[in-house]
Design a protein around this nucleic acid. Sequence first.
DNA 1: TTTTGAGTTGTTCGA
DNA 2: GTCGAACAACTCAAA
Length: 467
Amino acid sequence: MPSTAVVWFRRDLRVHDHPALAAAAEGHDRVVPLFVLDERLLHGRFESGPRTAFMLGSLRALDAELRRRGGALCVRSGRPEEVVAQVAAAVGAEAVHWTSDVSPFARRRDDAVTAALRDAGVHGRPHGGNHCADVSLPRTKAGRPMTVFTPFWKAWERLERRDVLAAPERIRLPPGLAPGSLPDGPRLEDELPAPFCAPGEPAGRAALDAWLDGPVDRYADRHDDLIGGTSGLSPHLRWGSISAREVEARARERGGEGAAAFVRQLAWRDFYAHVLLMHPGNARLEFQARYRDLQWDDDDELLQAWCDGRTGYPLVDAGMRQLAASGWMHNRARMVVGSFLTKNLHLDWRRGEWWFGRMLLDGEPAQNNGNWQWIASTGVDPAPYFRRMFNPVLQQQKFDPGGVYVRRWVPELAGVPDDRLAEPWTMSAGQQRAAGCVIGRDYPEPVVDHAIERRAALERYRAAGSA
DNA sequence: TTTTGAGTTGTTCGA
DNA sequence: GTCGAACAACTCAAA
């Protein structure tokens, strides 16, 4: 009697270095690679065309990788807590393997699936998540979860690492299994005018190869370059089309200053996974209780101007338009637009988190929440709020002095001279005509005055912090 | 992974 | 040639 296991895929859409798939393929004669299309994620408050399109592309690529190895992706629709156990029963599986996840939603879902499997007499077996190390382990000397990055990083460097695993050579499906099919759309190129990257494991592995083949060496001093400079691997890490552990191992193998700086950023990713795992309440509430009664404004027009990239601050608008057009934004720009939303527009960081979650191909709860709470100064890794208040004009002058990034994403500013590009509203009427960019007609006036709103934000934070 | 404003020093330029 | 206003360039503390 051949033994059978189900591998329940979620956001681990690859065959290389996949502990759950490897365990199933080694321990059983038959493997059922399963994906459950969960309607809750496709519609409603969290609906996102770009994300769904990227996911479907990643799933098609996974199906192709599985077929090359004799398998296929078995697609079913419905609620995982019902479907997973049904499929396991139908194929007579002894075990269901999956990759664990840290978000509160994922953990509730996985608990429900585990319970359903237990009722059905099937062994549910979670494997480590898509991180470099086991993010559930680090603790302070006092035995508490860690909340400061630097000590976390030191502890993380000392954690054990599992071996990088080869892709299974052969996947044997149970005879007569009907694969089911993926929906046709939405398609990425219909959702985004300039998609940031192609989905799927082969694209992810090619991007990793290209990154480690040279650009990574300059990461230490170039990571703030708004164009180039970064790996661009984040969507693949988010969907698991590459393995964080493998990325880390290969970067360490490469060695050098750039690779070390890059690995440190992978530690930030593991840090925020640790934080959300240990503090699921962060998904809704400020980690720092004293900031839970911060006063936020409720101005839908300002929020819309921010989402659309119509704030009148070129770097802010360039970042937001890059996001809307490509599904990605450079991290430096994310910090600037986040600071602008929370500390110049006085809008709740959760509204920015929501928009990022919808638009970012790499949007995942742990990273999105951790970074938004970082810029709102409400999260772990405490630093005074005034250290995270950015001046969009200075940031642009510092990180995009030649205006390449701004002109690329805000084309109506193309003719504005370099020395006016960070504050185009200071152009004279004659300069505006010469630049082909009249402020208020071709490009918006600034929606707020940074100097004034900065002082207002300081007052709000001071008031909440001392209450 | 910051910004601002005050204070200080040094330079320029015209009365 | 001297003086002082204006301003740039810098440091530093506070937010």
